[in-house]
């Protein structure tokens, strides 16, 4: 184990996988010479050379095509988007090509590409740079969607993503890059997809989150402890595949659920989970399922408005109070 930043854990994962498999390469804007916009790929071009750490023009369609085509031809690309907001340009390549080629060909060809980069809201970056879009991808069959919270998960899940034969959407919350945590140095350490983890056990209510929201869920849970409300906090880790088993077994104990997401609340993963719980755990529910999500507005710039638009601990606390009333 070593104490390191989330961003360093990601770098470690990529470096280890590049050592392990010569077919793994990185491409993206500023990933090489510039050392990565968030320093995630720092030093990798020097270590692996420009053919394996490829600086690209600001061409998101091209980057996504580069990764998709290279993956179809047998390589294991890691395409970095400078932010997931910019990846919107590349939607056709990701959704219509990478996600579908395996199915369209009945498995005759696969696309083992990883699309990764910083995601999330905050820092007064306003409407076009501050947003969470994971549900867009979780909505699409054929994509695996991964959002690690801890540095250890960042490493373990990224390694799993690189080794996976399906295209993976890997979203790193920019607000987590500087987070430190113990990370296994074992190059064989991986974290499997589809296994949520209970970050804090509790008995009265299940709070579900992922990525940066887990931190807010834990803070809320701590505050609620003092009110005598015992919260179980689940970190989903991957939205696709979704670990309903862990959610269902938790809800079977707590009977109350608050699902959180940083994304716009409308038509998001929380709604999906709520619907599945209504389907699969109807008889366990002892309160309405509440969602905590972002305000359904383009992210405003002004600090006060931004604060109101991003879901926080207080929103979670209030939702938990409501379902435990």
């Amino acid at each position: 184990m070593a104490l390191m930043r989330y961003s360093e854990a990601l770098r470690m994962a990529m470096a280890e996988e590049m050592e392990r498999d010569p077919d793994v390469f990185i491409c993206g804007e500023e990933v090489g010479q510039y050392q990565g916009t968030f320093r995630v790929t720092e030093g990798l071009m020097e270590r692996f050379g420009p053919m394996r750490v490829v600086d690209t023009p600001i061409s998101e369609i091209g980057i996504a095509g580069l990764a998709t085509g290279a993956a179809m031809a047998g390589l294991r690309p890691i395409a970095e988007f400078m932010t997931w907001s910019f990846a919107l340009s590349a939607m056709d390549q990701i959704i219509n090509h990478a996600a579908k080629i395996t199915y369209m060909s009945s498995g005759r060809i696969t696309c083992p590409a990883v699309f990764r980069g910083p995601a999330g809201t905050g820092n007064q970056l306003s409407a076009q740079h501050s947003q969470s879009l994971e549900s867009w991808y979780a909505h699409t069959p054929g994509l695996k969607v991964v959002l690690p919270y801890t540095p250890a998960d960042a490493k373990g899940l990224l390694k799993t993503a690189i080794r996976d034969d399906s295209p993976v959407i890997f979203m790193e919350h920019a607000g987590l890059y500087a987070n430190r945590g113990e990370v296994p140095e074992d190059p064989d350490f991986t974290v499997p997809f589809g296994e949520a983890v209970i970050r804090k056990p509790g008995t009265d209510v299940t709070i579900i989150g992922y990525s940066l929201m887990v931190r807010k869920c834990l803070t809320a849970a701590e505050a609620l402890e003092s009110e005598g409300i015992s919260c179980e906090v689940i970190d989903l880790r991957t939205l696709t595949p979704l670990d309903m088993e862990t959610i269902l077994s938790s809800v079977a104990r707590t009977h109350r659920v608050v699902v959180t997401q940083e994304e716009w609340r409308n038509v998001g993963i929380a709604a999906e989970i709520a619907a599945r719980l209504a389907d699969e755990a109807f008889d366990e529910l002892d309160a309405p399922i509440l969602r905590v999500g972002g305000a359904d507005v383009p992210m405003p710039y002004a600090r006060e408005l931004e604060r109101a638009a991003i879901p926080n601990e207080d929103h979670i606390i209030e939702a938990v109070r409501q379902v435990t009333r």
């Binding site: 009977h255 008889d283 529910l285 002892d286 309160a287």
Partner: peptide, 10 residues
């Protein structure tokens, strides 16, 4: 209709 949660009903 009696107002009861699904858990209460089950």
């Amino acid at each position: 209709r009696i107002r009861a949660t699904p858990l209460a009903r089950s």
